[in-house]
């Protein structure tokens, strides 16, 4: 008898509310290693909030988020931060690049922020490989201010992938890219996640990239269905 491997990420009946009155309800999510999920929704629908809950950055009012069987909802703030460091790669909607660091230094930034990640030659090689994959190898010494919006977004994607995280959470990763590049970058994200056996969740309002991912769900009126 063969047994199905347990899902990498599972959530149960999550709810989250803000002081402003915004309430988000999340119907259960199950995502296995190497799988990808697109969360589509308009701006302000709660996509970024959902990613915050999945990364352990935000705590739900009710329900659970479990990664590899560990319930993040019962973890302390320090434990959840440690989880983010060890397991997640984040792509922020606003890029989140450090203006004083070069492109390659930005990609390697996660290694400089926690002692659990060693900034060794393997990490540097991986950074350069990823920069090549997103078409920025020739610009690895440039500062973010010298890049276009699309190029900055690609740096942010390379940074999310560089640590080999098992859970990649991308918030509008193609939001600032040329139409021609959107599909390419979305496919790149999916392929790298798959090859790394990582689960990928992409929040986007761009319908044109939805079909790049294994599954898609919609968030609207405060509910992820």
């Amino acid at each position: 008898m063969t047994s199905t491997p347990p899902p990498l990420l599972t959530t149960t009946a999550l709810t989250f509310s803000r002081a402003s009155g915004f309430v988000l309800r999340v119907e259960p999510i199950e995502l296995g290693a190497g799988q990808s999920l697109a969360i589509r929704g308009v701006s302000g629908s709660g996509k970024s909030t959902l990613l915050g809950l999945l990364s352990g950055e935000l705590l739900p009012d009710s329900g659970t988020v479990a990664f590899n069987g560990i319930n993040l909802s019962t973890q302390s703030s320090a434990q959840r931060r440690d989880f983010r460091i060890r397991n997640t790669g984040l792509v922020f909607q606003e890029f989140g690049l450090v203006e004083s660091l070069s492109v390659v230094e930005n990609v390697l930034l996660p290694f400089r922020l926690h002692a659990s990640r060693a900034l060794d030659s393997d990490a540097r090689d991986r950074a350069h490989t990823l920069l090549g994959a997103v078409g920025l190898h020739a610009k690895s010494a440039r500062l973010p201010a010298q890049l276009s919006h699309g190029e900055r977004q690609r740096v942010a994607i390379a940074r999310a992938l560089v640590t080999g995280a098992q859970l990649i959470l991308a918030d509008e990763p193609t939001g600032n890219l040329d139409p021609a590049l959107k599909h390419e970058i979305a496919t790149l994200l999916r392929d790298i996640a798959k090859s790394a056996n990582a689960a990928l969740i992409v929040a986007t309002h761009d319908e044109s990239i939805i079909d790049c991912f294994d599954r898609a769900r919609t968030i609207g009126e405060g509910v992820l269905r």
Binding site: E57, A78, R81, D82, R84, I85, L90, F92, E94, G96, L97, V98, E99, L109, P110, L113, H114, R159
Partner: peptide
């Protein structure tokens, strides 16, 4: 502030 917030979101402790 945004840069520093990003560092924290990427895993840096406040002490770091």
């Amino acid at each position: 502030a945004d840069e520093l917030r990003t560092m924290e979101r990427l895993g840096a402790s406040r002490a770091r």
